[in-house]
Amino acid sequence: MAKLKQRQEFSDTTIAMFFLAPLIIFLFGIIIYPMASSLYSSFSVVRLSPYQINFAGLQNYINIFSDQYFFHSLSVTARFVGEVVVITIGLSLGIALFLNEVLPFRGIIRAIILLPYALSEFTTAYTWRWFLSSDWGLLNGILYRLGLIKDYIWFVNYERSVEWMAVAYSWHIVPLCAFFMLAGLQTIPETLYMQAKIDGIGPIGRFFKITLPFIKYAILITLVLSTFFAATTTDIVILMTGGGPGISSTTLTYYIYTVVFKSFNLGYGAAISWFLIAIVLVLATLYFTFLTRIGKAR
């Protein structure tokens, strides 16, 4: 009895804190501190050499509204996000429906389809850059060999650079989204489809009456994920198009990158970042309100 008491000297919470402490310190170091620091910067004018930080109130935020480059990149981001979302949902639903069928070599096919997500954004960007390049690109090479084109095509041009970036980025995240949808599909009992066939519901009716209700959450999650991924990615822009040609594919994140690392305007960059975060949060709220609404209407 006495021994037992001694052992219980530390409460469960204390022990948990002991094990969690390193993680908490770590999280604080890599998330909380930089966040606080950047929030403070957004209200300041920052100079690097010599380092100097002066509080400037809302000035950075006010500047945003008279910055035509900001509005340009905001529209590029909106276009990019919209395209990624549409491509990703369409493709991942299609792939999930296909993978859900009883296929030979099911395991291998699934692994191959998941592959693009296992590649880094870096690899994705370079792969597509090489694939689409106008002077030594693979796609041009193939089309030329097939005799379909006489002259090499400049794919990633002023008008279409955002679209190609959206295709490349979707290619990267579709597998993950497809697997969310596949997970949703696999919760559907086969007997429901059998029952529907006996009841005389055709394939289209079965999709809308059975399949869709079961995967609507997976679709919404895909919608949320692809929106946030696309709205916040920088790597693909830096590595695939460099925001160009010109500034045709300069997204908001890439614009922030240039403001901070090329113009060294840290305070202003931070302000735009927080503005982007605000937009994303508003979107998130809208999505999740919608999600709970359809959840209730179930």
Binding site: P189, M194, K197, I198, G200, K209
Partner: peptide, 20 residues
């Protein structure tokens, strides 16, 4: 085809459409 046979089936799991 099943819908042309006019048979009714009851499954062990009942197969009720869960969203209706």
């Amino acid at each position: 085809a099943p819908e042309k046979r006019n048979v009714a089936m009851v499954f062990q799991t009942y197969a009720l459409y869960p969203h209706m």
